[in-house]
């Protein structure tokens, strides 16, 4: 079957002949490689996207269930050539090691700051609990978002 949805503001279509995930369709058919494929069971958060404005793991969304929805991936969090404040904050602090988990953290943090512009350290940690950094580079990631939240950075 052919499905259609809005990806980062653009109408897109894809063909799904088997129960593919939204992540599969993003990467294999639509060239949106920002969302990463790692655990395929919703544990790692590296495939995080916003589906109709809600943060979800795209590996757990049946692609056909995105029909008619609005999907925002890391490619769509800021206009072309610009960075989202969340990305700038990570840049400033150097909150990137190998980079594999970074897109997922960016999308999760964009969601957090949209709902809560001044999260506490605890709120930041809880909001990012579904994102795993295998380099264990959490210190800098948390500091970046504490700084963005206007918190005193330890």
């Amino acid at each position: 079957m052919i499905i259609g949805f809005r990806l980062n503001g653009q109408e897109v279509t894809a063909r799904v002949d088997h129960p593919a995930s939204l992540l599969d369709v993003l990467r294999d058919q639509l060239g949106a490689y920002g969302s990463k494929n790692a655990c395929e069971q919703g544990e790692c958060g590296s495939c995080s996207v916003l589906l109709d404005g809600e943060l979800v793991c795209s590996c757990l969304v049946l692609a056909a269930d995105a029909e008619g929805s609005e999907v925002t991936t890391v490619e769509g969090v800021a206009p072309e050539g610009e960075l989202h404040p969340v990305q700038e904050a990570m840049n400033r602090v150097g909150a990137v090691q190998c980079g594999f988990c970074t897109p997922g953290f960016v999308v999760a943090a964009v969601d957090l700051f949209e709902r809560n512009p001044h999260p506490t350290s605890r709120e930041i940690k809880e909001a990012l609990a579904g994102n795993i950094c295998r380099c264990t580079g959490y210190g800098a990631i948390i500091r970046a978002f504490e700084e963005l939240a206007g918190r005193e950075v330890r």
Binding site: H18, S21, C59, L60, L62, D65
Partner: peptide, 25 residues
Amino acid sequence: LAGGTDLMVEVNYGQKRPERVVALR
């Protein structure tokens, strides 16, 4: 299919292959 957090794990791991799905989201 509701939230997909159980079913899609089984699909991704090749344990299930539903061809006809009613999406309740």
